[in-house]
Design a protein around this nucleic acid. Structure first.
Lengths: 178, 178
DNA sequence: GTCTATAGGAAGATAGAC
DNA sequence: GTCTATCTTCCTATAGAC
């Protein structure tokens, strides 16, 4: 899927990729939407694993920790445009994830909330701001500089702004004195 | 287009909408991609007009001005998911805008830059941050609360963070004292 | 479970009358 | 410029042998 675009994905593409003929897919999935649904859930579970596997190596200082999380989030999203579209943008004409698949996304949200609580961010609003900041950098990166680093480099700066706004403690002096 | 999704749009849909039969479209456009191209350009030109028509009524104070611009930007993007996908997300399998159509998007970028210079923001990096902030709110709004206001309400807060980071002057006292 | 064969439909594009 | 009719291609999905 990674190579063609998400909307242009066909069952023959998938079947070829896994070394099958196209009708054989129906022995495993009831419909094309069911395949999208499985991919949706798999993508979110992969993200969950990706988050969890990093959790031990993250810096302890809140500001640096938030930055590291943002960078991981960013890298995962930017690594695969089609996957990102499947997870976060509704581009498939009639597709809505099943409750089971959606549960994986909700679980990620819970992990993220917990992680944010760990650095002292408890309000939903603050969590919303944090996710919006990172997803903005992601969408600009994908839209305007795919494959580049132009927006990725802004992550420390943007998270720094956010941390300043919340008066989070830091090991460094702030970027700009008041 | 507004009602169906962008990727599911067919020539028959378009023709029906404008009261024609599908083949008649070929008297006006060479291909389906040519129609996408025209829509792409039209959307960006519409945004350009939408920006310019507001420019006289914007607040003069930098912080409030940035917020007002962000809210306009946000409202335009959120008003039509399919249009937003056409303008900012690559969802059409083989579609890349022609240089002529793309010029409209570049023109918008110029207007935006000029407007930012007007409030004292001259570096490309700062402009990148500003657009990332707004586009992040847009994508979260569309993905997680379509039709709602949950992320729109965060605009003053987020722009305030940005303005604080740049030490932009304001009419108000800052949200949080250091 | 996998295959070949094919149904059944919808898409983009073309031909040619008016 | 618009129409009807149709071409060609490609899709999802099903049937049925092995």
């Amino acid at each position: 899927m990674h190579e063609t675009s998400l909307a242009g994905l066909t069952l023959r593409d998938i079947a070829t990729r896994v070394g099958m003929q196209q009708p054989s897919l129906y022995a495993h999935f009831a419909s094309k939407h069911a395949i999208y649904d499985a991919m949706f859930e798999q993508a979110w579970r992969a993200f969950l694993d990706y988050c969890r596997e990093a959790v031990h190596d993250l810096p302890a200082a809140p500001r640096e920790r938030l930055t590291a999380i943002a960078e991981r989030y960013f890298d995962f999203a930017v690594a695969d445009l089609a996957r990102h579209q499947l997870m976060d943008v509704s581009v498939i004409p009639g597709f809505h994830p099943s409750p089971q698949a959606y549960a994986a996304a909700v679980e990620v949200y819970g992990v993220m909330q917990e992680e944010l609580r760990g650095v002292g961010i408890t309000s939903d609003q603050d969590a919303d701001v944090y996710t919006a900041l990172v997803s903005g950098l992601v969408s600009q990166q994908l839209a305007n500089d795919p494959g580049g680093q132009r927006w990725r480099r802004l992550i420390p700066r943007v998270i720094g702004m956010f941390a300043d706004d919340l008066n989070l403690p830091t090991g460094h002096t702030p970027r700009k004195a008041p």
